[in-house]
């Protein structure tokens, strides 16, 4: 709540904290434009940050448990690059195929669908490979390779597309939690809600997966069914977030680790809600830093999450000497 208030009270236009609180509580404030800024710009942005942080963190938790790998996350396994590919194909690819112009037009819904489809595609490929490759380290490398492939396709697309489209894509890839209307916010919330419900339904199998797939099977878990529902959940969460906010790094990887450290448990009944809360808070903090309070410039959120996230992971490794999940 405090982070929420802090996030809203800080921004390019300086609004006193007391006025922010008044406005949020529905009291009249001295300046009408303050009210407008808060309700139409800052509050949606704060909610977006919450959703983005929660969604990415939960997706990271699911991936880490499913792949039994502490380094797994939406970014590392190529899900985010898949979403980038989907977005790039939509933004820049469509102009290359004029025939498709009739069907596809770039709006937020189609962008969200394209990014989600892209992330699903990559996730499914990684999953199929995971069935063949037992070594999780190899799987991570494969995920990175997919990242390279999608990056290559994106650069080919960028080469052929015009400056305006390119800029649109680059801005998307910086990541941003601003610019979402209430309607878009609702759509993102809907997508994430499905992901969260699927995750909650898989809590038992996630816990069993801590022992490995064979043990999970012996405990009566239908692995085929749950593997797919976990993947769909992770894809929806990461894909949905990436579609609306761009590829945001590190939150998905770092938050599950932070949460495990704080709660000292591996039970997903505790971890799942905790990860949602911490992810939201961390993302709010990152966004607060990114908007550089009282200045007109807004830094790319992606830069901030990496600058804050990477040292956290390093610190965890150094302190524990090993990364246990």
């Amino acid at each position: 709540m405090l982070c929420f208030g802090l996030n809203i009270s800080l921004g390019s236009v300086s609004i006193p904290f007391s006025a922010t609180v008044k406005s949020l509580l529905g009291y009249p404030v001295q300046n009408d434009s303050w009210n407008y800024i808060i309700w139409n710009y800052r509050v949606p942005k704060a909610f977006t940050a919450l959703l983005v942080g929660s969604g990415l963190s939960l997706s990271g938790l699911l991936m880490q448990t499913l792949f039994r790998n502490p380094l797994a996350g939406p970014f590392v396994l190529g899900i985010s690059s898949g979403a980038s590919l989907g977005a790039a194909l939509l933004i820049m690819g469509i102009s290359l195929f004029p025939g498709l112009m009739a069907f596809g037009f770039v709006n937020d819904v189609s962008l969200a669908i394209a990014a989600s489809l892209g992330s699903f595609l990559v996730l499914l490929i990684v999953m199929v490979v995971a069935l063949r490759v037992k070594d999780t380290l190899a799987l991570l490398i494969i995920g990175l390779m997919f990242g390279s492939i999608t990056a290559a396709i994106v650069s080919v697309l960028s080469y052929f597309s015009d400056a305006e489209k390119l800029q649109q894509y680059i801005y998307w890839s910086f990541g941003s939690v601003g610019n979402l209307s209430w309607a878009q916010l609702l759509l993102l919330f809907g997508i994430l809600l499905i992901g969260i419900i699927l995750s909650i339904a898989s809590i038992k199998s996630l816990n069993a997966l801590l022992l490995g797939e064979k043990y999970a099977q012996s405990l009566g878990i239908n692995m085929k069914k749950y593997r797919y529902s976990i993947i769909v959940a992770a894809g929806l969460l990461a894909g949905g977030v990436t579609a609306f906010a761009g590829p945001i790094a590190f939150i998905g990887l770092a938050v599950p680790h932070l949460t495990r450290q704080i709660f000292n448990t591996t039970d997903h009944k505790v971890l799942l809600p905790a990860v949602l809360v911490y992810g939201g808070i961390l993302m709010l903090l990152c966004d607060t830093v990114a908007q550089v309070p009282n200045s007109a410039s807004v830094l790319p959120i992606n830069a901030i999450t990496s600058i804050l996230g990477a040292p956290v992971v390093i610190w965890l490794l150094v302190r524990k000497r090993k990364m246990i999940f």
């Binding site: 039994r68 997966l209 022992l211 490995g212 064979k214 495990r260 591996t266 999940f325």
Partner: peptide
């Protein structure tokens, strides 16, 4: 099983 459990972080 002989194979180790996936997460050694469980109590």
């Amino acid at each position: 099983l002989t194979e180790p459990i996936a997460s050694k972080n469980v109590s």
